[in-house]
Amino acid sequence: MIRYISSRLIQSVITLFAVLTIVFMLMRLMPVEGYLGESYDKLDEIQREKIIENLGLKDPIHVQLKKFYKRVASGDLGVSIAYRPGVPVAEILKSKIPYSLGFGIASLSISIISGITLGIFMADSEGKILKRVGNIYIILINSIPAAIYYILIQFYITDIFKLPMLFYIDRPISWILPVLSLSLGTTATYALWMKRYMVDELNKDYVKLAMAKGLKRREVMKKHVFLNAFVPMIQYLPSSILFTISGSIYIESLYSIPGMGGLLVEAVQRQDNPLVEAIVLIYSSIGIIGMLAGDVLMAILDPRIKLGKREGRI
């Protein structure tokens, strides 16, 4: 298992490097003038050249790349040029990250818990109404684009329940809707797969053996079926992290939550390259770490992976 984990770790580091390089390359493809921001018109040719040279944008590519790696490694993410000109990006992000992180974690936790619970109830055949309602919910949430139901929820639900439309840090009641909206999609995913896995497990021989030994159905569900169905669920963790990230970009701007997602939207609109770069890097890192975490957890929990391949499948 150690071998597996270390190879996965190395893989992730390579991917991280690949991301850094790709981000760097793509950004350099954009017109160099973009780095001058608002001051573009106010300066003349010579001054512009000076600034561009100072930013190191005239150096050969491999020199720039090396400098870039060093910069990022030391935590220097550049200086904002349009959103808040002159302010180091790291400082801007410092105040935003806690919001996004808090929201993301809260929403993920809620989705996982409710999704899995819903899935378990849907798998246990008693309760046809719950199954039907659950199915409709899953189908609707999966087929209607998130963009649309986010907007609809914000508008109609705030109206019906008299909830605030914008987020205020000091009014907990304004936290409910954004977190819930963000959780809907992931909950559906977990419910769907948990139910499917549990139903699959229930048909397996070892469950019948356990019951043949004389265990009560409830106990069999708890001790055998649940754990076996839960373990493969971990593979959905990385993609739910990604879904939460992209969802948060919407939701943060919809509800004016001062987090990284909303910041990204603004940075893009204002063409603030360093800021966009930094946010992309951070989101990518989260995504990569998420995948690593998913694989490592799977390796820890499933004894079969420790020792062998899964029938050659990836």
């Binding site: 990604l242 992209s246 995504g287 990569i288």
Partner: peptide
């Protein structure tokens, strides 16, 4: 494996 780790949305 390397490409897969890159988040598509980003």
């Amino acid at each position: 494996n390397v490409i897969n780790n890159l988040p598509r949305v980003i």
